[in-house]
Design a protein around this nucleic acid. Structure first.
Length: 956
DNA sequence: TGATGAACCTAA
DNA sequence: TCAGTTAGGTTCATCA
């Protein structure tokens, strides 16, 4: 079978022309596309696997009812779950999504018995593919404030009453008629995480509120001041009042994202399907579409740590889909005007190779497609209704596709509204909760401003591939076509947007062509998801950081650190203050050593501090809990031996006095990473390997984001003393490394030459050691790294990483070289940093030209050839012989012409392009920075030529 | 003509 | 209600 699959892999393979298909008016290409072969092949796979007979593809409209008959579509519903004997059977499921809703008290469950109560809801999956919805009762939100001086336990009830009164008075409308906003107050001994306080626990008031949304007003009112008993009015500072309810719950119950939950036998209640009028007391009716729905007390379930058997992953259903709309010419489709004409869907079990459901819902007839079910509808509203029903029946855990979040789902929902398909917008697992489209804007320094739509699909995780790619990959283009080509070397089916409507208005063959296109657009995201191991990697990230899977795509970096910090803090009775974040002064970052620019025809050894910032935090015990605030040294009578002064003048106690939380978190992350890596080496099963690799990656990323968290001034808990001390130590270290290397490896000490650090950035130094061979450079580099490491506090470690030979150092953050690490005989790659070849704001022509030039310089050792090449391209440009499809133009460049021949050429080219195809100025905004001149100038500069003699290399 | 700042993207 | 950091190169527009 795999043999066959391989054959399909090669473009234009022998299979491509064997099968003929009927031709329609729009069928101007030869034979079926490769994707069609692939689809057809999927049918064969199933036949070979002796699966049940495939349903004959339908061509004519089907009565909708029949679609859902088990006889026609046996694979749609999940397998019937085993019957459960509550008294003897525990229920184990992998929790995939965790949220909360406001409901009312359930008899026998802990928590408030009156008024609205928050109920945690876990959605998940058993190993047998049974979907589970679990209502967890009795957990209430809370926060802390330090008890006022002189506060006595007997004041508690007064305090609670006072706070309750002001909170209720503060409510604009009390729709739910809440009479008890504050459920409980108690005194407990805690310590603020912020600053060192000699480990002294102080009395705090733990305030439990009825609902999560009451935390913010309670906090605000307490900050404004509250009077209690005989004490004067006091303004309280709130702690942990800004923690998401879900995170609060997970931290307190040791639940991490996507871990396994066990409900012990006898401890949970099964919900039943209740028909109308069937209202037995004590039996709750099902409210979700999950196959099994249960209730449990928050104190009664077991949360399994991600270890051993509990590392497994349940067979999630991943549903990928794509829609086509019949837009008007030149107008982007609008849901109140333009119909949805096709929806293609593929459903895959996570871990399996091929989707087990493949279908396309079409408006009007459509010729059959081998490998896919074709479901035709005469009316658009019926199509939409049937598709939504189909989604609910197949009950996917994950919804994916390309840009479904900002296009497909909103379009479908809005279109359904226009057509009055009222049953449509219920795409989650709670049939009573309508999916609505909301706008949200999201802003961060990292990602800039981003406008997004948000659609609630309770219990089903939206995993929009586009969003994943935007987050995790820096790409030149994010079109599905470009992305597919980049990762899969595969293209979309070739259908121009402008002809979609014509295809729809043609015949069943043209609609078939459209359907194949649509199917591929549903299929590609699945392939990409698998190739990039998104689901596994995200799950591991959720497990490592402890947040729900959905947070990873919906939220930023900070929540992950907060989750870990809270878990660690709780163990030591430490609590997190709510800080008001006001962006202050920036602080100094890393050092970039002034480069000795030039072309180095000798091996350059590169030494790197591994995980520099995490290791600094560990080595020097930098943490909120170890920070000595002004006056603390005197206050706690600390001797100089007890603390350190950082390069920025901040003080932290040593680990002998108090071990910091952040260093502890980092240690755990790095230990876990090491463990994952050793397990990875031992593991034979490729699936488990992927999981472990995903984990070690998640652990590394998590460790590196801790520093950023402390420096995030608009953040949950910024601490510039930590972040600036970290960078301060870093600056000191790189400077010291340079000195050490240059002082030991000298002629005077018997080495072949005086070593010179020619460049360095943040955590690395590039050393010219005066040796001629890569092997020698590796040997000395290795030794130097070890020797330098011994001058620093563990776990700080300088590592020999690679040798560049030759090495072209153009400027700070701009260099290229042949990269040797595994072998001293052959280079692994040509490594380019910061140069046009790696930048996404240049047109391909520039990148290609520079890349070729660099290859000629570094690999062929032919700098003259490089300049010749640059010249050739220039003259091609000037003679209009260049392939203009490689060019993208800037608006600015078309406006001004100047003396630069290259630039002038571009202006002309831009004009030509415009004349030829006025509507297609491609990627407007891309830079074409003096394309060729820039390159030639660059190459010449690399050759140390004088300014002005751009093409001359005589001096070299 | 050179200085300056914005926009963009990258290095780490 | 939400947002990881700073350093730094290159290009281009603007202005005196």
């Amino acid at each position: 079978m795999d043999e066959k699959r391989k054959k399909l892999g090669g473009a234009g393979g022998p299979l491509a022309s064997q099968v003929k298909r009927p031709r329609g008016d729009w069928d101007d290409d030869d034979g079926p596309s490769q994707f069609e072969e692939e689809l057809a092949f999927l049918d064969e796979v199933e036949a070979e696997m002796a699966m049940e007979l495939e349903v004959q593809p339908a061509q004519e409209a089907l009565p909708v009812r029949k679609l859902f008959s088990p006889a026609l579509n046996p694979k749609w519903p999940r397998p019937t779950p085993p019957t459960i004997d509550l008294d003897t059977t525990p229920l184990c499921f992998q929790q995939l999504e965790l949220d909360h809703y406001i409901g009312s008290h359930v008899r026998g469950m802990p928590g408030a018995t009156q008024g609205p109560v928050p109920i945690i809801r876990m959605f998940g999956l058993t190993m047998e593919e049974t979907s589970v919805c679990c209502h967890v009762h009795g957990f209430a939100p809370y926060f802390y404030v330090p008890a006022q001086l002189g506060f006595k336990p007997e004041y508690l009830s007064d305090f609670q009453k006072e706070l309750n009164n002001v909170v209720i008075r503060d409510m604009r409308s009390n729709k739910d008629n809440i009479s008890q906003a504050v459920l409980a107050t108690e005194i407990c001994m805690k310590e603020s995480i912020y600053g060192y306080h000699k480990k002294k626990l102080l009395p705090f008031l733990k305030i439990t509120m009825a609902l999560p949304r009451l935390l913010a007003p309670a906090k605000r009112l307490l900050e404004q001041g509250l009077r209690c008993g005989p004490l004067p009015v006091h303004c309280y500072q709130a702690f942990e009042a800004n923690i998401d309810f879900e995170i609060r719950f997970m931290v307190d119950t040791d639940v991490v994202g996507c871990n396994w939950i066990e409900l012990p036998a006898g401890k949970y209640r099964l919900r039943k399907e209740l028909s109308n009028g069937d209202s037995k007391k004590d039996v709750l009716g099902k409210v979700s579409l999950s196959q099994i729905e249960v209730d449990v007390s928050w104190t009664d379930f077991i949360s399994h740590p991600v270890e051993g058997e509990w590392q497994k992953i349940a067979p999630l259903r991943v549903l990928s889909f794509d829609i086509e709309c019949a837009g008007r010419k030149g107008v982007f489709p609008e849901p109140d005007k333009d119909p949805v004409i096709q929806i293609a869907t593929m459903v895959l079990r996570q871990g399996e190779r091929d989707p087990f459901i493949r279908n396309v819902f079409t408006l009007n007839s459509c010729a059959s497609i081998v490998g896919s079910q074709v479901l035709c509808f005469q009316r658009e509203d019926e199509l939409l209704k049937a598709w939504a029903d189909f989604v609910r029946v197949t009950d996917p855990d994950i919804l994916t596709g390309y840009n479904i979040q900002n296009f497909d789902i909103p379009y479908l929902i809005n279109r359904a509204q226009t057509l009055k398909v009222y049953t449509f917008p219920f795409l989650g697992r709670i049939p009573l909760t309508r999916s609505v489209v909301r706008d949200s804007s999201f802003q961060s320094k990292q990602m800039g401003r981003r406008e997004n739509k948000v659609i609630n699909t309770e219990g089903r995780i939206q995993f929009d591939l586009l969003q994943v790619l935007l987050r995790d990959y820096k790409l030149r283009s994010y079109t599905l076509n470009a992305v597919s080509y980049h990762f899969l070397q595969e293209q979309k089916e070739d259908v121009q947007h402008s002809i979609i409507t014509d295809l729809q208005n043609g015949n069943e063959q043209t609609r078939r062509r459209l359907a194949v296109y649509c199917l591929k657009d549903a299929y590609l995201p699945l392939r990409l998801l698998e190739k990039l191991m998104c689901v596994i990697n995200y799950m591991e990230m959720a497990r490592v950081t402890g947040v729900p899977l959905s947070y990873l795509l919906a939220r930023g970096q900070q929540i992950k650190v907060v989750s870990q910090l809270l878990r660690q803090a709780m163990k030591q009775d430490l609590v997190m203050p709510v800080v008001k974040s006001d962006g202050g002064e920036d602080y100094t970052g890393a050092t970039v050593i002034e480069p000795l620019k030039g072309y180095y025809d000798v091996p350059i050894a590169t030494l790197d501090f591994s995980s520099l910032y995490p290791s600094i935090m560990m080595a020097h015990n930098l943490c909120y809990t170890t920070l000595l605030q002004t006056g603390s040294i005197e206050k706690y009578d600390l001797s100089p031996n007890d603390f350190i002064k950082t390069p920025t003048g901040d003080h932290f106690v040593k680990s002998t006095v108090r071990k910091g939380l952040l260093p502890e978190i980092l240690e755990n992350l790095l230990i876990a990473r090491k463990r994952a890596k050793t397990e990875l080496k031992k593991e034979q099963d490729p699936f488990k390997q992927k999981v472990l690799d995903g984990r070690q990656l998640a652990l590394k990323v998590s460790a590196n984001s801790v520093y950023g968290f402390t420096g995030a001034q608009v953040g949950k808990l910024p601490c510039l003393e930590i972040s600036q001390s970290v960078t301060g130590f870093g600056r000191q270290m790189i400077e010291k490394t340079k000195q050490l290397v240059e002082s030991k490896y000298t002629l005077a000490n018997g080495f072949k030459a005086d070593a010179k650090v020619i460049y360095g950035d943040t955590d690395s130094v590039m050393c010219k050691l005066g040796v001629q061979s890569v092997a020698e450079a590796m040997e000395i580099g290795q030794e130097a790294a070890e020797w330098v490491s011994s001058h620093f506090t563990p776990p700080i470690k300088l590592e020999f990483e690679k040798v560049y030979f030759p090495y072209l150092l153009i400027n700070k953050k701009r260099y290229a070289g042949l990269y040797f690490s595994s072998s001293s005989n052959t280079h692994d790659k040509m490594d380019c940093k910061g140069i046009e070849t790696v930048r996404r704001d240049n047109c391909p022509l520039v990148a290609n030209l520079i890349n070729t030039c660099l290859q000629k310089i570094l690999i062929d050792r032919d700098p003259l050839g490089a300049v010749e090449h640059a010249k050739d391209v220039i003259s091609d440009l000037l003679c209009n012989r260049i392939d203009i499809s490689q060019l993208v133009i800037t608006k600015e460049l078309t406006r001004t012409a100047d003396e630069y021949a290259g630039k002038q050429a571009h202006v002309e080219l831009a004009e030509r392009m415009r004349k030829r195809d006025p509507g297609s100025a491609p990627n407007l905004g891309d830079r074409v920075p003096y394309v060729i001149i820039g390159a030639a100038k660059g190459v010449a500069a690399y050759m140390k030529s004088e300014k002005g003699s751009t093409l001359a290399v005589r001096q070299y």
